[in-house]
Amino acid sequence: MANQNKVLKTVFLSIMVAIGVVISPILRIEGMCPTAHLINIVCAVFMGPGYSLLCATLIGIIRMMFMGIPPLALTGAVFGAFLSGVLYKLSHGKIIFAVLGEIFGTGVIGAIVSYPVMTFLVGKGGLTVFYYVPMFITATIMGGCVAYIFLISLKKTGMLTKIQDRLGCEVYEGKRNSSK
């Protein structure tokens, strides 16, 4: 059973990466990629912080290699993906905390980390430390709202628990998860 869970997790992670890569250029606004944040939150809730971080990293690397996207594909995703999973876990399965983790992790931490990366490594001038914050927060709120609606819908039907259980991940049902 443990080996079957590993295979299923790997397949699910691969599907999340594929979806993230394919829809990112389609559903994109200049300087923002709300679908990346949707994927980060969904992956964090389904599989936890480690897998969400891995998913965001793989999507970012593929987008940079094959789509010519700057390093923002990584700096604008990995912190939120990881923090989303951590806050979801620490809150014992409250979806809103996964969304808030993505918003703060990407919208603030990722945006601020993007400044030195873009300034010193890429050589883009005219930036300030908070240059990316408005764009990143806007994109995370957009993606976070869609992720929240999607995950709450799954939770109401009982599918969220079934998916988490099938993947062999931590399931948060019962008294500790009585609120959204």
Rank of each mutant, 00 (worst) to 15 (best):
M1N: 12
Q4F: 00
V7A: 11
K9S: 08
K9T: 02
K9N: 13
T10I: 14
T10G: 14
V11R: 01
F12I: 10
L13V: 12
L13H: 05
S14F: 00
V17W: 07
V17I: 15
I19H: 01
I19D: 00
P25N: 01
R28D: 04
E30Q: 13
G31I: 02
M32Y: 03
M32R: 03
C33F: 11
T35Y: 08
T35I: 14
A36V: 12
A36Q: 15
H37K: 02
L38I: 10
A44H: 00
F46Q: 07
F46Y: 14
M47C: 10
P49C: 02
P49Y: 10
G50F: 11
Y51R: 12
S52A: 15
S52V: 03
I61K: 02
I61W: 05
R63T: 05
M64V: 02
M64E: 04
M64C: 08
A77P: 00
A81P: 07
S84P: 09
G85I: 03
Y88T: 08
S91A: 12
H92P: 02
H92T: 12
H92I: 10
K94L: 12
V99D: 04
V99K: 03
G101N: 11
G101D: 02
F104P: 06
T106C: 08
T106Q: 05
T106V: 13
T106W: 03
G107E: 08
V108A: 10
G110T: 02
S114T: 07
P116L: 14
V117N: 01
T119F: 09
F120W: 14
V122Q: 06
K124F: 13
V129F: 12
Y131P: 01
M135K: 10
T138Q: 10
I141Q: 02
M142V: 14
M142F: 13
G144V: 03
G144E: 08
C145G: 14
C145Y: 07
V146T: 12
Y148W: 14
Y148M: 06
I149T: 07
K155W: 09
I163G: 00
D165Y: 14
R166Q: 12
L167M: 03
C169E: 15
Y172K: 04
Y172G: 00
Y172E: 09
E173W: 08
G174H: 09
K175A: 14
R176L: 15
R176C: 13
N177Q: 11
N177W: 09
S178E: 13
S178T: 13
S179R: 15
